[in-house]
Amino acid sequence: MSTDTAHATDHDDVHDDEDHWNDEGHWTDLNYIKLALALAVITAIEVAISYMVDDLGPFFLPLLLGLMLIKFFSVVLFFMHLKFDNRLFSLMFYLGLGLAVAVYTAALFTFKFFSP
């Protein structure tokens, strides 16, 4: 991790002219590094949570799934630029994602996967 941040500082001089071409909500390399750090922290929290099944009880599953979704959509929206990009790209991807979630959830439902 330390090497990554070290390298980022080497590039601070570039950041100034970066803003000219970067119209994507002014996300600079530094923003991406911060986001990656945040994701790393979330991963650490996730791992910690995974050892606390008994302590968290009913909160265990929603917490883990919630963190997973935060990570998932952070990468999709920012690393993959969907937040800044044309909405047609979002449509194509979310159509596939939505269909996948819908049909497979329905199929698992018929297997009584969600019944206790």
Binding site: L99, A102, V103, T110
Partner: peptide, 15 residues
């Protein structure tokens, strides 16, 4: 068309 596939499986005991 994506929400009807199980009508091929009515006889399979879906519940």
């Amino acid at each position: 068309g994506w929400g009807v596939w199980a009508h091929h499986m009515f006889a399979s005991g879906l519940g």
